[in-house]
Design a protein around this nucleic acid. Sequence first.
DNA 1: CTGTCGGCAACCCGCCGACAA
DNA 2: TTGTCGGCGGGTTGCCGACAG
Lengths: 622, 622
Amino acid sequence: MMIDLNSAVDVEEGMELWEACAGALPKRGSSVVYFPQGHLQHLSALDLPPHIFCRVVDVKLHADHTSDEVFAQLTLLPDTQIELKWSQGPVGTQIEQDDCIDDKTFTPQMFCKTLTASDTSTHGGFSVPRRAAEDCFPPLDYKQQRPSQELVAKDLHGIQWKFKHIYRGQPRRHLLTTGWSSFVNKKKLVSGDAVLFLKNGEGELRLGIRRASQVRSGSTALGSAIQQLNYGGVASLVKSISSKSAFTICYNPRLISSEFIVPFYKFSKSLTLTFSAGTRFKIRFETDEAVERRHCGLVIGMSDLDPIRWPGSKWRSLLVRWDDLDITRGNRVSPWEIEPCSPVTRSSNLVLPASKRTRTIFPPENADYSGPRDGPVVSDFGESAIFQKVLQGQEMLSFDSSNGSVHGQIHQPPEVSFVPGFGDSRISTIESNHGDFFRRTGLYSSYESCKVLQGQETIVCPSYRKDPVLGDKSSSRRNGSYNILQGIPAQVHPYALVSSPSSMMTIQQTSSVASDFCSLLGAEREHMVTDMRASFGVSDIYPRNSQAHPKYMPNSLGQDMMKDNQNEIGLAQLPYAIQSCKDSRDLVPTCKSSCRLFGFSLSEGRHTSNNEETQSQIHAFM
Amino acid sequence: MMIDLNSAVDVEEGMELWEACAGALPKRGSSVVYFPQGHLQHLSALDLPPHIFCRVVDVKLHADHTSDEVFAQLTLLPDTQIELKWSQGPVGTQIEQDDCIDDKTFTPQMFCKTLTASDTSTHGGFSVPRRAAEDCFPPLDYKQQRPSQELVAKDLHGIQWKFKHIYRGQPRRHLLTTGWSSFVNKKKLVSGDAVLFLKNGEGELRLGIRRASQVRSGSTALGSAIQQLNYGGVASLVKSISSKSAFTICYNPRLISSEFIVPFYKFSKSLTLTFSAGTRFKIRFETDEAVERRHCGLVIGMSDLDPIRWPGSKWRSLLVRWDDLDITRGNRVSPWEIEPCSPVTRSSNLVLPASKRTRTIFPPENADYSGPRDGPVVSDFGESAIFQKVLQGQEMLSFDSSNGSVHGQIHQPPEVSFVPGFGDSRISTIESNHGDFFRRTGLYSSYESCKVLQGQETIVCPSYRKDPVLGDKSSSRRNGSYNILQGIPAQVHPYALVSSPSSMMTIQQTSSVASDFCSLLGAEREHMVTDMRASFGVSDIYPRNSQAHPKYMPNSLGQDMMKDNQNEIGLAQLPYAIQSCKDSRDLVPTCKSSCRLFGFSLSEGRHTSNNEETQSQIHAFM
DNA sequence: CTGTCGGCAACCCGCCGACAA
DNA sequence: TTGTCGGCGGGTTGCCGACAG
C-alpha cells in the first residue's frame, strides 16, 4: 500500500530521501513528452498521437508501505505551446533551462552501502564504512574506551529506527549493532540490497533502501498495473488527452517501464540526430538481475514498432543489433534511449579494478585540478534539490547559479564524431578528440565510472587513492573526489553525486551542467553524424545464415522480443499483476506463477511457486 | 497476488475447502441480479438500469497467495429470459430449483476452531478439540504411552503443511506441536482467527483459515479495487451490459461489499413483500470488528438512495431505524437483506451461555427426533457440493435428491406473521406460532444459534450437552447434533452444517431446504404482511429532538453513513487501495493512513499507522 | 579499512505435565 | 474437556575481538 508523503513537513524533508532512493523526477513545471504507446503498451488501440507534449503540473511522491518501493504520481497537462516549439524546429536552450530551475539551498550528506552477507546475517550487525560514519553520524567521543551512541533515523514513511552505533574492535571500526537486525528483518533486506543514510540540514538522519533485484521486476508489474488501472482507466486517459486536460500517471524513475515520459529537450534533441543505420550506440539499462552494464550495439534500421496503431511513432523506432547477443532486451530502442558509442578498446573490458582503471585512464592533467576526479553525471531531469550547487570551486567550468546554466569556458567545443563501425574497437582520431573532450570538461570520468560501477553487484567503492595535491584526507573532505554510484536507476542516471573515496557521497548541484552537456553533445552530433540510412537495409546487415539474423537467433533477439512483449503487456494488464506484488519477498514465486497465464511457464510447476517456504514448512517436522 | 485454482484436480479438491473458507457462491448457471449501483458505488453515473438480470456463466475461484483471502470471479451474462420471468410476476419455484441443482455426492467432515491465545502464542502448539481430532484426523494408536503421528494438510494453494499430532498430557488431549507455530507464523495468524480442517472423501486433509477482523476490511478494499479496476474498467462494463454480453466481476461471499449480486429468487421474493414502514426486521451482518450480531430494527420508510442517477432502484431503498443505535451501519438496507424479526424477549440478551440457552429454548419436543438439534441455515445460493444430501434420516422433511428440491411433508405451513411494533419485545400469539414453525421444521435452532455464535469473538463451542436420548458419544456420531458456526461470512450464512457438540461439523446437503424455506417464508409474508406505508412518514418516526433523529446522531447513523460512503468508494477508487493489501497484517495501518486521503482521519496521525511495529523498533535499543 | 569467523552469552521457541475452569 | 502456566532444554540471535584480504 502506498502512503503519500502528504504532510508538508515530510514532503519537505522526505524529498531528498525520496530522490536519493528513486532517482530524479521530471520537475513540476517542466516540459515532457508522454508516450501513450509506451505507457499503455498494447493495451488497446487508441485514438491518440504517439507522443503528447505536456507540462508537468503536479508531482506527488509515494512510497510503498511494505516494500518501500518509491514512485510518483505525475499530473501532466497537454501543452500546445510545447508542441508549437517542437514544430518550429530544434531545441532551444530555453527549454532545457526551464527544466533546471531550482531553489533548494543546502547540501545534504549521504552514503549508500550495498549490504554484505555479514550485514544481513543474523550473526552480527552492520559494518559502517568509516568515512560514512564520520560524515553522516554525530561524532563519537573517541576518548572513551568503547564509544557508542544511539542513532535515530527516519525512513520514507516517517518511521523512526533506532540503532546502537558503536566504535570497537581491533582495528577499530564503526558498527550498528542493536536495532540493526530488526531493521533488516522488517524491511526484509537481503545481501545485495543497499541502505542509504542521509543527513539533512538540521542534522537529522534519514534512512532509505534500494532493493537489488527481483523487487524491481515486481515493481514493474505493480507500477504498470497501477498506471493502467488508475481509476478511470484508459478511457478517461484518452478523454483527458483529447480534451487537453490534465491526467495523472504513475512514474518510477528506477524502472525501465517508466520510459514513457521523457524530458522534452531529450526527446527533441534525440530527433535532431536522425540516427542512421550503421550508427554505433551505447545504452544503459538494468537487466532482470539488476545488473546494469553498458551495452553497445549497432543501429540496423528504423521502422514503426506498430505501423497500424501508432504510425510515425518514434517509440522504439530503431532496430538495433546488440554486440552482446545475450542481452535480454528487445531489438528495438527509442532514439532518446541511446547515446553514441565511443568504441575505444577498453570498452570491451569494463570491469577493471576501479582504482587501477582510474589511474590509467585519468592521470591528473592539470595540477590546478584539485576538485572531483569524477564530475557530474548526465541527468534526464533537471529536478531537485540535491543536484544543485555542483562544481563550485572547479576550474573547468564556471557555474552561474542565477539561471542554472553553465557558461562554458569551453567556448570551442572539441570535435566529436560518431563513426559507424562494425568492429568492436575502432578508434578514429576524431574519437580520440571526443575522449579528450570528455576529459577536458571534467565530465568524462564520471560519465565513464558511473557506467562501469552501476552494473557491479557488490563493488561500491573504488580503492582509495591519495590525492596528489591535497593528500590523503583533505581531498575527500572537499566536494568529493570520486563518484561512487551503485544500484543506480535504469536508463539514465539521475544522480549528480560527487563522493569521497569511501561510499560517502556529497550531493551537489549538477543537473544544469548535465543538460548543458547534453545540448553540447547534441550539437556536436548534428554536425558530425554521417547519414548512412540509405546504404543499409535491415536484412543486409545480417549475414544470411548466420546466427545474427533474427530468424536464427531463437535465444537472443527473437526470443527477447517475445519476452519483452510478454512481460510488459502481460503483467500490466491483469489484476494478477497487481496482486503479485503484495510482499516484496514473495514477488518472485508469485510472478512466476502468474506468468504462466500468458503462455510462459517460468516455473517448473505451480507448486514450485513458493517452494522455499513450502519446503521449510514440510521439513519442520521430521 | 492471486493464484487461480486452475489445476483441474485442485478445483475439484479445493472447491469444498474454498467454500468452507469463503461461503456459498452463486452457482454456475444460476440466475442472479446484478446491481451496478452497489458494485460501482458512487463511482460514476452510468447509463444502466439499477438491476440487471443475469445468468452466471462462469465461476472461477481464487485465493490470495499471501493472505489466503478467498474470492471468486463471476462471469455474468445479462439474460432477458430472467427479466421476462421477472416482468411476468412473482417468483416461481422453478427458478429456485434451478439454483439448487448439484451433483456432488460425498460428505466431507470438517471442523473449525477459533484460535486461542495459547494456540497462537510462541509458547506452545495447537490444542485440538477432542472430537475434531477423532473425526477428522486418522486414528492414533491409543495403546501407546504417547501416541503421535504426522499429519499432512494442504491449504487452498495446494501447499502442504505438516504437523506432529500428539495425544498426551494429564488429562490426555490432542495437540498439534511441531510445525504448528511455523504455520501460524507463515499465515500470520492471530488469536481470533480461525483454522479449518476438512477431511475429504479420500481421507486427505485440507486446511483453511478464516481471518477474524481487519483483514476483512482490507480485503474489502482489495476486492473493491479489483472489481472496479478490472482491466477495461467501468466503461467496458457498461458496454458489456448494454450489449447484453458477458462481463466479469469479483465476488467475495464473506464481504458485505459483495451484496451487489443477489440470487434472483431472493431479490424477486423480497419485492413481493413490499416492506412497509413500521415493519420490524432483523439482519445479519458483520461489523468492522468481525463481530456479527443479530440486529433488529424498524422500517421507517422507503425512498430512492440516489433518485437522480438510480431512480426506482431497490438498492438500499428502505430507510430503517435500528434498535441498537450503536450499529455501525447506514440507515438504509435493501429489501432482500432483511428478514422479518421475531421480537421475543431473549433477543435482547444474545450472549447467554450457549448450552444453557439451548437447553432453555429447545427442549426435545419430539422423542422421535433424534437427528440434528440444529437444522440447516438459510443459504442465499443453492450452490455446491457440500450443501447437498442434507436431512437424510430426518423425519420432518423428505429430500428428493433427483432434482434437489424439498418436498415438504409440511403441507400446511404454519401461520407466520410479522407484526410491526415499536417496542423491543412484543410477542403476539401469531409470533409464537412463528417460533413454533421454526422449531417444528427443525430450522429454527440453527437459525438462531448461528446468529448468536457468529458474533462471538472467542466462543466457539457451546458447552457439551449430553443427548438425552442417545447419550454422550453416539449423538455426535450421527448427522450432527448442534450447529456450531463461527466466524461466518457476512450477510447471509451460506453454510448448511450440522455439527457435533464440539466444534466438529459435518457438512451436509441443505441448500435446497434453505431455499425452500425461503419460499415458504416468502409466501407467508405475502399473506400476512400489513401494509402500513401510508401511515408513516420518515420524520414522524423520529421523536423530534431525540437522539434517534439522524441530525442528532453524529456518532451513529449520520456518521456511519459517511463512513460507509467513504470506505467503499474511496478505497475502491485509488491505487492506494490496491496496494493496501500487500500484507495481511499491514492492512490496518495502511488502510487507516490511506483513508485520510478522503478526508477522514481514521488514525490519530500518520505516524500511528504502524505504531506497533514502530514502537517495537524504537524500543529495540534503550 | 572492513568482511567474515569462532567464541560465548542471553534470549526465546517450543515440548512437557500440572492445574483449574 | 481444554486454556494457560511454570519448568526446562536446545536452538538462535547477537555482541565481542581475531584475523585476513
